[in-house]
């Protein structure tokens, strides 16, 4: 029983990271209809940059994180402006190919700047709490809290603010939004800024909890898409539920079945859900 609880707690931390990635993907998809495949690599860029600032330059984490977030956001907005905007009217296959090309470019940039070594962002959070037999490392607790905070902030932004309302309006009906006076040229930029900030936060968490290495970003974005599909494309609550479900499934699979096959089990769960709910757990039936 304790063991199950332990794995669930582990799963929530990983699930939180997945939720952050998936929230970025789902809002981009909702607005532009683009499967933003480069998202994982951009997130890893932020993680690498944080590592470089902290371990290489000796800059404290509290300064390094905002710097990495800003750099990531600029990169994300540049991608929207320079690469996705020109293919907005093209077929979704072409937009997807652009996304693949971008992934290669960002992966190449990461290799060029940060090398191909596996890196771990150093933190001083070394304490381990023990709550009724369930061990909870300090770092993992902070990751869960930070993820929860960011998810809440993003939800409030999208649900409660004027800009958030405009984002939802464009996602729902672009033409009607234009008629209502929404500036559809700036909205994608706002969405990319928000999505990339969440992505970079996830990248930093991965870098501190596990490690960053070439290829990790692609793995992460695939998990993000799996979450999207599980929860329902374009649905924010779906991304949150889907991410936690995927994280916990993976942890339980790693703890009780086989850690080598944990991803296989996670994907099979996703496919199984789709057989019964093709629109995802919380998606609307089309």
């Amino acid at each position: 029983m304790i063991e199950i609880l332990q794995q669930i707690v582990n799963g929530i931390a990983i699930g939180g990271v997945y939720v952050l990635i998936a929230l970025g993907l789902t809002t981009v998809f909702g607005i532009l209809g683009i499967a933003h495949f480069a998202h994982g690599s951009v997130s890893m860029f932020g993680g690498y940059l944080t590592f470089f600032l902290v371990a290489g330059q000796g800059i404290p984490l509290v300064i390094a994180i905002p710097v990495a977030l800003t750099a990531g956001v600029v990169l994300g907005m540049a991608i929207e402006l320079l690469a996705y905007r020109p293919v907005r009217k093209a077929s979704h296959i072409n937009a997807f190919i652009v996304a693949l090309g971008l992934t290669m470019m960002v992966e190449g940039l990461n290799l060029e700047f940060f090398g191909h070594e596996q890196v771990v962002i150093p933190t001083s959070f070394d304490r381990v709490f023990n709550i009724g037999g369930v061990t909870l490392p300090e770092l993992r607790l902070y990751v869960i809290l930070a993820a929860a905070l960011l998810i809440a902030a993003m939800t409030i932004f999208v649900e409660r603010t004027k800009t958030g309302q405009a984002i939802r309006a464009v996602a729902e009906n672009r033409d009607a939004a234009i008629l209502m006076g929404v500036n559809v040229r700036t909205i994608p930029l706002v969405v990319f800024a928000m999505s990339t900030a969440l992505g970079v936060a996830a990248g930093i968490m991965v870098g501190a909890l596990f490690a960053i290495a070439p290829g990790i970003g692609e793995g992460l974005v695939i998990k993000g898409f799996a979450v999207l599909i599980l929860g329902g494309l374009g649905s924010i609550p779906g991304a949150i539920v889907g991410g936690i479900v995927l994280g916990i499934t993976e942890s339980l699979a790693a703890g009780f079945v086989s850690s080598a096959y944990k991803d296989v089990i996670a994907f099979l769960v996703m496919i199984f859900v789709l057989l019964f709910r093709p629109q995802g757990l919380l998606g609307k039936a089309s």
Binding site: F29, A35, H92, F96, I222, F225, A226, L228, I229, L233, A260, Y261, D263, V264, F267, L268, M270, I271, L274, L275, P278
Partner: peptide, 27 residues
């Protein structure tokens, strides 16, 4: 199961299958 999905859903489900094949070949 994949072809019950359309558009991006289909693409990503097949991607997941490629990963499954890869992991099984590896392990």
């Amino acid at each position: 199961p994949s072809l019950r999905m359309k558009g991006h859903y289909f693409a990503i489900v097949t991607l997941a299958f490629n990963l499954v094949i890869f992991i099984v070949l590896l392990n």
